[in-house]
Structure formats: C-alpha cells, structure tokens
Design a protein around this nucleic acid. Structure first.
Length: 269
DNA sequence: AACGTGTCCAACCGCCGTGTT
DNA sequence: TAACACGGCGGTTGGACACGT
C-alpha cells in the first residue's frame, strides 16, 4: 500500500504539516495508538504517506519530545557518544531523553561539522577527534562545572587536576567503578549515579612525563555527577591511547592549526 | 531598504533489514 | 523461497529566518 500511495503523487500531500493535520494525527494516535503507519494514515484520512506520519509523530508531535536549545550536558553527551558510535543517531538519541535522532543529526551537522570545515580537516580525522577530546570537551566540562558552581549546586570540587593537555586543564574525574554504567542497554543510572562507600572505587590520577594521565583506583568516594560521567566515558575509551599520543603532539606542533583552534571562541554557546 | 550569506530544522529520499504471505 | 510491504535509519534538501553589508 505504501508504494501505491507514494506513487499516487496527485493524491498525496507533501510539504509542511498544517495544524489540522497535526490535530488529526494526534487525535487518531490517542485513540488507536501508534504503529501500522500506512493503515493509520489511510484510516485517519490523512493524505500523507505512512512514513511521513511516522516522522511527524516521532520528531515533533510525540508528547515527550523536547524542543529548544541543546544543553551543555547534552552537547557533551552527544560528543562522547558520537566518538564511540559514529553517526548512529538513533542510538545516540536513546541516551538523550526527549531528543530525536533528527535533532541530534541536525545539531551535529550545523555545530560540529562546521568547525571541522573551519579547521580544514575531515570530521573523522584524528586531528579533529583530538580537537574534540583535548580542547572542546574539556572546555564544555569546565563550563558545565562553572555553571553548576555558579548555581551553588553543591558540587564536589576536584582536589587535583586529572589531565593537562598543554592547553586546557581538565577537571578531575570522580567515577564509580560500576560496569552497569557503561551498558548500552542500561542508561538509567548514569545521569545521577551515586556512589556509596560499599561500591565505590574512585579513579585518581597523576601526570606522567608527557603530560598524560595515569589512573589508579581505590581512593575516597565522591558523588558522581553527570559531567563527570561524560568525562569518564571518554576517558575510559581513550586514556590508553593518550599514553601513546605522539600524533597529537605532531599536529599541535603545527602552528597554523593550533592558532586556528585557539581562535575559536565559545563554539558551544 | 535591499540584497547576500549563513544558520537552523522540518521534511523528504533512498536504502536496508525484517516480517508476512 | 520469493515477493512484497513496512518500519527504521542516515543522508540530503529546501525554506524560513537572522544577521551583516
């Protein structure tokens, strides 16, 4: 039926949805539920494809969809998860409640790829990934921390820096050694995980000779907040690579690239 | 005020995997 | 097993709007 409807150009409506169409769709789903989109479109009397109805519902009309600016925490999470999974927008969206894959994809294209273009490098290149990890993500973390401190949000402040990149000093990592936090199928804990003395194992750090970080566990415990966890995700993914970070040293020695990076101000604002 | 340019985002397109007949 | 319909996904487009000149 889908192909029949799609091929019948005269009958099908395209373009922006009207308020009336939205009302019909929402009302129909409220009474009959979602799914079976082609049947839904036909029975609801909408001159739209099932696909179009599905997209409209999932990306815009669904009650739990959040619109508006992507928060700093969400930006950070997008960067972290994208570095893990690449352009798997739907999977990334699962970890940002209320955000759609379309919205995240748009964000990435407009805000992130733009800066790859500015740097004249590929978004998947090592150089750009290093830029994200060593400069922009730390900057985001700092801003999140600063905003929380400013809001008097009772944040445990770091006792010592974890990582010094030569450009930006990263905030400390206070992490829980809880494997469930990294389970793709279990994202319910990480946004506000709390470490108890019984289950805590907190990473501390010290700098080695090339400015990277070594990790040890079993120190005091801290309350884990969201930005720390974001940081942890990246850290666990990359700290081994950081110990062998000859490549980043190489491109940081390129003054043009370095100056370009430093001239980008508050790109995430 | 008019125009050009850049940004944002809703919507569409095409492909692919899965389920059904 | 093949053919088809459907849903899901990532890539792309185009229009509205903002901003600068």
């Amino acid at each position: 039926m889908d192909k029949i409807r799609e091929n019948n150009i005269v009958e099908l409506k395209r373009g922006p949805w009207t308020v009336e169409e939205d009302f019909i769709l929402v009302n129909y789903i409220a009474h009959h539920g979602e799914g079976r989109w082609n049947t839904l479109a036909h029975c609801a009397g909408l001159k739209r494809t099932g696909k179009s109805c599905r997209l409209r519902w999932l990306n815009y009309l669904r009650p739990d969809v959040r619109h508006g600016n992507i928060t700093l925490e969400e930006q950070l999470l997008i960067l972290q998860l994208h570095s893990r999974w690449g352009n798997r927008w739907s999977k990334i969206a699962q970890h940002l409640p209320g955000r759609t894959d379309n919205e995240i994809k748009n964000y990435w294209r407009t805000r992130v790829q733009k800066h790859a273009k500015t740097l004249k490098c590929d978004v998947n290149s090592k150089q750009f990934q290093d830029t994200l990890h060593y400069i922009w993500i730390p900057r985001l973390v700092e801003r999140i921390q600063a905003s929380k401190v400013q809001n008097n949000n009772s944040i445990r402040v770091a006792q010592q820096p974890v990582l010094r990149t030569g450009i930006t000093e990263l905030v400390p990592i206070q992490l829980a050694n809880n494997s469930n936090n990294n389970n793709d199928n279990n994202n319910s804990n990480y946004l506000s995980a709390t470490v108890t003395p019984e289950n805590s194992s907190v990473a501390t750090s010290s700098e080695n000779s090339i400015g990277t970080t070594q990790v040890s566990h079993n120190q005091d415990y801290y309350q884990v907040n969201q930005s720390d966890y974001h940081h942890q995700l990246w850290f666990e993914d990359n700290y081994q690579a950081m110990d062998q970070q000859n490549s980043i040293q190489l491109w940081m020695d390129n003054e043009d690239v370095f100056d370009n990076l430093c001239n980008i101000e508050d790109i995430w604002s």
